[in-house]
């Protein structure tokens, strides 16, 4: 795939072309001092590029918080089913995602294609183009480099934009979808060299990235978790946990969902919506028995699923180190801190 350069001042012009091409564009927008992904219709709506993260991840582009699986209608003894046509899903561009957002789609896709191929998720993702911007700053919650990512990592991106100190931005195109987006504004781009490890361009890119030394390795965590099922650490870490779903819902890789019914007499819809392993109801049996009866067992499940079961079964890690769960947690459950303490046990 090609690399380009574009002036910082031309990025808005490119975004304008993308909007004009009729794509649904989701980008960071600041309201009342808080920045989150929202649909936008003009580059002016996009938040200043001075914040580390949006509150929520970009997963909603392919895995919305609620979606119709099918609708049904009963007339006499005949039942007709109506499934949403994947062609009806909008072509979507996620503008200024972060590399950790892009990385999240690898584990998500692994989950949604594990045995059953989830057509809805796959169709939405096929219509989504991720334009990620490299991170120039990190905060106390970021730890992408400890879980295999990085502030300038391309994996999962359709395009990765890195703003260089020279006033130019390096545009690394990673997929055909990305190339199609660059092709919307050919006049704004000039071709750039490949970013080989020993090239000046590589050095220039590195100089523009946030510095974030790794604090532990995925392998360390996994090795410790293999022995940790009965450890008191789960109760110690989870005492203050309130059992809400904030961490799961802002997470780029949490994929648990519930199936619900929206019945209206002889017609209705079946709906898929986000769910969370932090809720007691998530594993509550009809009998009243709950195999995860305490918040400590639910916290253990969250960590083991992401850092032990997913690597084992799906060859993917259920965490991109974005830190959103820790920022969103009402009681400051800091995942980096908890993982570091597990790795040091």
């Amino acid at each position: 795939m090609k690399n380009y350069q574009i002036k910082h001042s031309d990025l808005d012009g490119w975004l304008e072309k993308i909007i004009a091409a009729g794509r649904r564009v989701i980008a960071p927008v600041t309201e009342e001092g808080h920045t989150d992904f929202r649909p936008i219709h003009s580059p002016a709506e996009v938040a200043a590029d001075d914040q580390v993260q949006t509150i929520q991840s970009a997963k909603q582009a392919a895995f919305p918080k609620a979606e119709t699986l099918f609708s049904y209608r009963k007339e006499g003894t005949a039942v007709s089913l109506d499934q949403p046509a994947p062609e009806s899903y909008l072509q979507t561009v996620v503008w200024r995602a972060r590399p950790c957002d892009a990385a999240g789609f690898t584990p998500l896709s692994a989950i949604f294609n594990w045995d059953y191929k989830d057509n809805l998720y796959n169709a939405r993702l096929a219509r989504t183009t991720l334009v990620a911007f490299s991170c120039q700053q990190a905060d106390a919650y970021c730890f992408c480099t400890s879980v295999g990512g990085g502030p300038g990592e391309k994996k999962g991106c359709d395009i990765l934009v890195t703003k260089l100190p020279s006033g130019k931005a390096l545009v690394e195109v990673c997929t055909e979808k990305g190339e199609a987006l660059a092709a919307l504004a050919p006049g704004l781009f000039s071709e750039a060299n490949a970013v080989a490890d020993d090239s000046p361009l590589f050095a220039e890119k590195q100089s523009a990235l946030a510095q974030l030394p790794a604090r532990f390795s995925k392998e360390d965590i996994r090795r410790h978790l293999a022995e940790a099922f009965d450890s008191p650490v789960w109760r110690e870490q989870s005492e203050r946990c309130l059992g809400c779903g904030a961490c799961a819902f802002v997470c780029p890789t949490c994929a648990c969902f519930d199936i619900q019914e929206d019945p209206h007499g002889s017609h209705g819809r079946r709906i898929r919506c986000w769910d969370s392993c932090a809720f007691a109801l998530f594993t509550q049996h009809t009998s009243g028995h709950n195999p995860r009866p305490s918040q400590a067992t639910r916290w253990r499940q969250r960590i083991l699923h992401k850092f032990s079961y997913m690597p084992e079964r799906l060859d993917a890690t259920g965490c991109t180190g974005c830190g959103r769960c820790s920022r969103a947690c009402p009681v400051d459950m800091n995942l980096l801190e908890h993982l570091t303490s597990i790795a040091q046990k």
Partner: peptide, 12 residues
């Protein structure tokens, strides 16, 4: 419309 029903309001 923005609420994601994480029920943090209830939990806190």
């Amino acid at each position: 419309s923005k609420c994601v029903k994480c029920y943090a309001c209830r939990a806190a």
